[in-house]
């Protein structure tokens, strides 16, 4: 479904601030795989996600989605293939527009825009049905401006908007990190329910080791611009956070995993 081949990316090449963000990354994702990605700050997680979504273009290498070469396509040109939820709950929705208008935009993902009404009764019916599965009572608030919703509700709506058109790839960029634990748990449950329902091919970046182990069916660890661990489902099920830390040390030849955020969560 997704093939990343020999991708390299260097920021500020040739200056003192040169930073190799990705080195020779190869990743092949099968249809229906749900990959969790962990790694310390600066490991290249965000760069990889932005390469897939089109926010960044690789210096070398190619990216294919569902057999289609998208390496040089702008973000909006490949958006029809990709659903995305950002870390910031404010980022995935338009606050001054109503819930139904936001959903109408999501419904039009990658399609040609017309001068037909953005929202009609037929679409409203669909939106209500979709909103019901969020269990937030939003199905009765179609005409509420999204800016009035709580962070958790906005993130739930973002998740729905990213998924209900069944994209080829779903990218989740630490999408629970900005929420309190209770709301985060709710979004985790919703994510599992929705990914399962549509059998979405998913890549989820997280800072939470438990989450990375409990969710999905494949785990990647990034470090210094490369994939240093690729753990399949069977092995992942048996692992605990401590095992992950040990695996990291082995992979790095003794270097200990140094990030406070990891140890605390």
């Amino acid at each position: 479904m997704l093939n990343i081949t020999n991708v390299n990316k260097v920021f500020n090449a040739g200056t003192v601030n040169e930073k190799i963000a990705l080195r020779n990354v190869n990743l092949h994702v099968k249809k229906g795989e749900f990959i969790t990605v962990i790694g310390s700050n600066g490991a290249g997680k965000s760069t990889m996600m932005n390469m897939i979504s089109g926010g960044l273009t690789p210096d070398e290498g190619s990216i294919k989605i569902d057999g289609k070469d998208v390496t040089r396509l702008a973000e909006h040109q490949r958006a029809g293939l990709i659903g995305r939820v950002f870390q910031d709950p404010m980022a995935g929705t338009a606050p001054n527009m109503t819930i139904e208008e936001n959903l109408a935009i999501a419904l039009g993902r990658g399609k040609r825009r017309t001068l037909g009404f953005g929202v009609n009764n037929q679409k409203r019916e669909l939106f209500r049905e979709q909103l019901k599965q969020l269990d937030q009572g939003l199905e009765n608030r179609l005409k509420t401006k999204v800016g009035f919703l709580s962070g958790g509700q906005r993130q739930a709506l973002s998740l729905l908007m990213a998924t209900f058109t069944e994209p080829k790839i779903l990218l989740l960029d630490e999408h629970t990190a900005a929420l309190d634990p209770k709301r985060a748990q709710l979004i985790v449950e919703l994510t599992e329910k929705i990914v399962e329902r549509y059998k979405l091919t998913t890549i989820m970046v997280t800072h939470n080791m438990e989450q990375a182990l409990n969710m999905g069916n494949r785990l990647l660890m990034l470090h210094d611009g490369g994939i240093i661990l690729d753990i399949p489902d069977e092995k992942k099920r048996t692992m605990k956070p401590q095992d992950l830390l040990r695996a990291f040390e082995t992979a790095r030849g003794g270097e200990s995993f140094s990030e406070d955020r990891f140890l605390l969560t």
């Binding site: 909006h76 958006a79 935009i105 039009g108 825009r113 001068l115």
Partner: peptide, 27 residues
């Protein structure tokens, strides 16, 4: 016009351009 598909895109461009690009609109 502001309630058509195209109008919604226009409004979202001013409201949250990052979001509307992620839904395939050329801002």
């Amino acid at each position: 016009f502001l309630h058509t598909d195209m109008g919604l895109d226009l409004r979202a461009t001013g409201d949250n351009s990052k979001m509307i690009r992620s839904f395939g609109v050329n801002t």
